[in-house]
Structures are given as structure tokens and as C-alpha cells.
Write a protein that binds this DNA or RNA. Structure first.
Lengths: 301, 301
DNA sequence: GTCGACAATCAACGATTCGTTGATAATAAA
DNA sequence: TTTATTATCAACGAATCGTTGATTGTCGAC
């Protein structure tokens, strides 16, 4: 028995004064209304209505139940309509996890525009380069860069991420421009410790061997490495969303372009495809296409 | 879908942190709990829980719904347990309709005793000799005297009601004691206007003819007629619950005893047999047998 | 009074849903 | 890796739901 429907039926009977009219209101049959009320009485173990075929009178218990049930139903309706708003309008707190460097370079304009479009959404942006568990840590959505292994999560591809080798013109003039991966052996390499090596296989071996030589600089922050490369300290392998501006301005130059690995991608990762809160859905829609195709940071040539 | 059960399932999942433990608590299967929560989400149109196979986290919507649902469920439980009390303990207002004379003569001791046995019951006793509609006028129980025609109401027989012809010894000495119904023609008859003539057929004809002669007194109150008969004003046909005391004391003498009509009865009439509020059930049980068998007012010989 | 109209309930019948069982996918622990 | 645990899916029989037609009881009109 659906107690809520039964309560609704009972309340309508009381208000309309008759089973038949209540049934019309509820758009069902008098028989069903009668059944509901009977079941309700059975469940409660006492009579709610004294009824002849013509008229209806509330029992004392019925009177109390009527008031209580009315309250309960309005509570439920209020609650659900409130949730309905949550569903249709984007509102509430949107918790986002994102990689540090990418967020610092490219999220501010997006966040600003999104906030303007959805004023009722409060954004909580947590920057972190480790792989967070979005369910465990309560994130609505996480931005991730790389090749994602399959999981129960949904990963929507937002933009391609090119990773290029580059160095400053000064450095290249001084040490020569490599034309094959093997040429890299003689160079300074600015090594990024979090780099996902799976995604750049073609030149992986060479770079690793360089890394082992410890000739160069190691950091877990790409921005520092790129800036250092601009100073002429060596060759750096970094995504173009960091190095793109310097390349466009001529402060860095791409090398071994024909060995550039297949682009990896930026993904928006979230927990499910259906029954998504509107704030999440809106954010995914918003970020998808925001950066252009190709993304604006890749327009340096 | 039973939304209430679904809400209960959801709440237990949140509290226990796991579908399986919630299922144990609810004494059902994890599959069913999962189904319930899914249905709830489907109904609301949004996700309440972010779940991996190992852990569970509340969505923002889920958090709100959790609090609301918890409130709703406790409200319902409170309401129902309150009604449960109403059902098991006798309490509340008990509205009784009763015939005027019977109530004045024989209800006070019963009411007093009942009140002592069920202190939480407030009695509202309405005296009325017309046939009230207990549903229409909101009575819990009506006491009625007579032969009841069948109806949708339940009528429980409480006691036999003997109706006897009697007169004072003085009157009989003066006018003679009738030995056949035909003898009554020459007598004064104290006529009760509400008397149910169907129940006293054997002497009905004679009495009616006397009534038409208008020789005697007419009243709608049996007590007045009996008291008048005790003064020697004539013959009266009244139930023994009025005349019994006078007969026992020798102030009235029964006549035409062999023509005494079949006893009619006192009935407790109420609306239904099942799902009776405890106060009504208690009262019916209480009055049944209270007057003895035969009733104490008939113990005059 | 007798008849007709209306209201609630009862009975019975498909169609649907419910709740169980077994299997599957995914993750954490060992 | 393997094992154990967890949530979900699929499918089946059983129970319930909601409809239809008939029944009972009550009111109003002639």
C-alpha cells in the first residue's frame, strides 16, 4: 500500500465530503478511493470515517489523523518542490577539483563567466595534482589531464592537450637544435616529476635516460620548469596550455615537432550520467566548448 | 512505489553508511533497498547518493532530502503512535444518545462506574426520545428501546424490556380489576404518545380505541404517566424500568398479566463492528451485563 | 408508500508491480 | 593476483493494483 497516496485520498474525501467527488478530484475511481481509505483504517487499526452511503463524518481518530496527515503531505510537497528547484535551477555549492597549473592558467575566465551565468551557484574549487576520489572526498566534478583508465565514473572529453618539447631560442643557438630523439642525450632536460609517462611513449625512453643522468632540473611544477626554460636553462616537455603563450611570443621554440606524442586530453570526470544535479550538468555543458577547438592556447602558429 | 518505505530505506542507508547494513536493519535484502533508493531518485528526478561499490556519500540534494525525510517519518510515527494509544487505551469524548426516561432512571450509576473504570473518557450524554441518526449527528453509540428495523448499523441487545399494564390498588378497588382486554374499554387510560405500538400487538387494538375516546391523559413522558397512575388516575402501559420500583413497593399492581406482550429490548446501536475506537468498545462491553439478567428493575416478584 | 437516482462497497479479473534469487561488475583488502 | 565485499542487474513467481460490473443502503420525488 502506498501510504502517501492513501493519505492523500483520505484527505480529499474529508475535504470534498464524498468518496465520489474525491475520486473525481484525484482523477480515479470511487472504488479505489474507498479501498485506500479502508486500507488506511486497517493499517491504523481503527476507523477514520463513519460513513453511510450518503454522508460522511469524521471519527475522533479521523479528525486527528486528518490534521496530522495534512501537515505531513504539505511537508513532503514542500520538500520535493524544493528539491525540484534544485533540479531545474542551477544552485547550491559546486565542488570542483582541478590540476594546479591548468586551473591557474585557464580557469579564472571560465569561473567568472560561469558565475555570471549561474549566480545561484557557489563554486568551491580545490586545486590538487594528485588523483582525488571524487566520491570519497565529495566532489561534484573533477578536471583531469591524461589518459583515463576505465572506471565506474563518467569522463567527458573537454579539450585535447598537446604536449611539446621546447626550449628558448638562445638555448638552441648555444646547444644546437635536436633533429632526432637521440640528439636529446646531450641536452639539459627540465624534468616534471608528475608527468604521465604513458602518454608520451615515442620519446619516453630517451627522456628517461636523460632524467637518470640528473643533468638538468627536476620539479613537480610545470610553470617553474617552463619559466626556467625561457631563461635558457634547457629543454622542457610540457603541455601547451602552459607553454603556448611563450611559444606564441617567440620566447620558446618547439623542437622535434614530428615526434610530438599523440595529444592527451582534458576530461571532466563526474559520478553519473543520469539524475545529475543541475549545477553539475550546467558546469559540464559550460566548460565543454569554452576553450574552443582547437583550444585558444594552442593558437600559436 | 511506497514512498514511505522508500524514504525509510534511504534514511537507513544514510545512517548505516551501507546498503547491506541498512538492509539488515530493515530486515530485507540489499537488492530491495537499492531498488527503493533508485526509485526514490527516479521519482525526485535527481541523485541522492553518490555511490561506489564500497562507500556512499550524500549529494547536496540527498542531504536536504535526508533531513526533510527524517522529519516526515518521525511526524508520521508520532501521529500513528498517538492514534495507537487512542485505540488501545480508552480515551477521548464518548458521545452517547439515550432515551430520556431510561437514562434518568438507570444510567447514572452506570456512568459513574464507567467513569471510574475509564477516567480518560469524557462522556457526552444527549437525551432524546426521537430516533437520532448517529452518523449524521456524530454519536459514537445510541441506546434504543424497541424492535429495530434492519439497517447498516450494528445493534447489540443489552437487556429485555418488559412492558406491563398496571394501575394503583386504590384505582382498581374503585373501578374493578380487568380480566380480559375487552374490560379495558371502561377504564381511564394514561396514553404514551411515543409508544411503539408494533411491539404490543395483543392489546393494541383495545388500547387504541380507548385512546380515541380521549378518556384519560396523554403525555410523551412515561414518568409523568406512571406517577399519575400511582395517584389513582387510571391504567398505564409502561416499561418496567419505569414502573418496576412502584410495583415492588406495592404502589402499582400489574393487571392482565397473561396478556403481557413479548418483551422488547434495549439495544446499543453503533456504526461498525470492526475498527471500533476503544472508548466505544469499552462502553459496549461495560453496559452489556451491567443491569443483570433479568435486569434489576424487573425484580419485583 | 413506492420508485428512481445516487453513493459506497463488494467481487472478480487482468495487468502491473513487488520482492526474492542468482548472476555480474567493481573495488578494497590480503 | 586473488579473495571478499558491495551494489546493481536480470528474471521469475507471487502478490497487489486498479478497473469493471453488480449489490446494498439511503435520499428525494411522485
Amino acid at each position: 500500500m502506498d501510504r502517501i497516496e492513501a493519505m492523500r485520498a483520505f484527505i480529499h474525501v474529508v475535504q470534498e465530503g464524498t468518496f465520489t467527488r474525491a475520486a473525481e478530484r484525484l482523477d480515479t475511481s470511487p472504488q479505489l478511493v474507498s479501498k485506500y481509505v479502508s486500507q488506511l483504517e486497517q493499517h491504523l487499526g481503527l476507523r477514520l470515517l463513519n460513513r453511510t452511503t450518503r454522508r460522511i463524518h469524521l471519527t475522533e481518530a479521523g479528525n486527528r489523523y486528518y490534521q496530522g496527515a495534512q501537515q505531513v503531505l504539505t511537508d513532503i510537497d514542500d520538500m520535493e518542490s524544493q528539491l525540484g528547484d534544485l533540479h531545474t535551477r542551477a544552485q547550491g555549492v559546486l565542488r570542483i577539483s582541478a590540476p594546479v597549473s591548468f586551473a591557474m592558467h585557464h580557469l579564472p575566465p571560465l569561473l567568472s563567466a560561469f558565475q555570471k551565468a549561474h549566480p545561484a551557484v557557489t563554486i568551491d574549487l580545490q586545486l590538487n595534482d594528485r588523483k582525488v576520489d571524487i566520491v570519497e572526498e565529495g566532489f561534484d566534478v573533477a578536471l583531469r589531464i591524461g589518459h583515463l583508465k576505465s572506471s565506474s565514473l563518467i569522463a567527458k572529453r573537454i579539450a585535447p592537450i598537446r604536449v611539446v618539447l621546447c626550449a628558448s631560442p638562445d638555448y638552441l643557438k648555444q646547444h644546437g637544435t635536436p633533429t632526432t630523439p637521440e640528439d636529446l642525450i646531450d641536452h639539459h632536460y627540465l624534468h616534471y616529476t608528475y608527468m604521465d609517462m604513458d602518454s608520451i611513449k615515442p620519446i619516453q625512453k630517451t627522456l628517461l635516460s636523460i632524467g637518470h643522468d640528473n643533468r638538468g632540473i627536476v620539479s613537480n611544477n610545470g610553470d617553474v620548469l617552463v619559466a626556467t626554460a625561457m631563461e635558457g636553462a634547457g629543454i622542457v616537455l610540457q603541455p601547451t596550455f602552459i607553454s603556448g603563450a611563450a611559444i606564441r611570443e617567440g620566447k620558446l621554440r618547439i623542437i622535434l615537432r614530428e615526434y610530438e606524442p599523440e595529444p592527451i586530453a582534458l576530461y571532466a570526470v563526474y559520478a553519473h550520467r543520469q539524475l545529475l544535479a543541475s549545477k553539475v550538468r550546467s558546469f559540464i555543458d559550460f566548460i565543454d566548448g569554452f576553450f574552443g577547438d582547437p583550444p585558444y592556447w594552442d593558437r600559436f602558429e
